[in-house]
């Protein structure tokens, strides 16, 4: 399942970053978001704006197109 398909307040355990831009992926890893971590969708901004995510009590925002790359399983 793609992260972009996850509903608000549902959690996804990340399995794969797909073909995400390597620098973007690196930054996410450095922020503690990598395979095996669960992220919760907090909010989708309108008009295809960024998506707010939560990972272990830490909030961050990434763009919609990047949420298309992240795949995983609902938890």
């Amino acid at each position: 399942m793609k992260l972009s398909e996850v509903k608000i307040n549902e959690k996804l355990r990340i399995e794969d970053f797909g073909d995400m831009d390597s620098q973007m992926r690196r930054r996410l890893k450095e922020m503690g978001v990598f395979e095996g971590k669960s992220v919760k969708v907090v909010r989708y901004c309108p008009l295809g704006g960024p998506c707010l995510l939560e990972c272990e009590g830490q909030l961050f925002g990434i763009r919609k197109k990047d949420t298309l790359c992240i795949k995983g399983e609902l938890v």
């Binding site: 973007m24 930054r27 922020m31 960024p50 707010l52 830490q58 909030l59 961050f60 925002g61």
Partner: peptide, 11 residues
């Protein structure tokens, strides 16, 4: 250029 965006939201 490729553009990307990650924003950390502190409490």
């Amino acid at each position: 250029e490729k553009s990307y965006f990650i924003m950390d939201l502190p409490p």
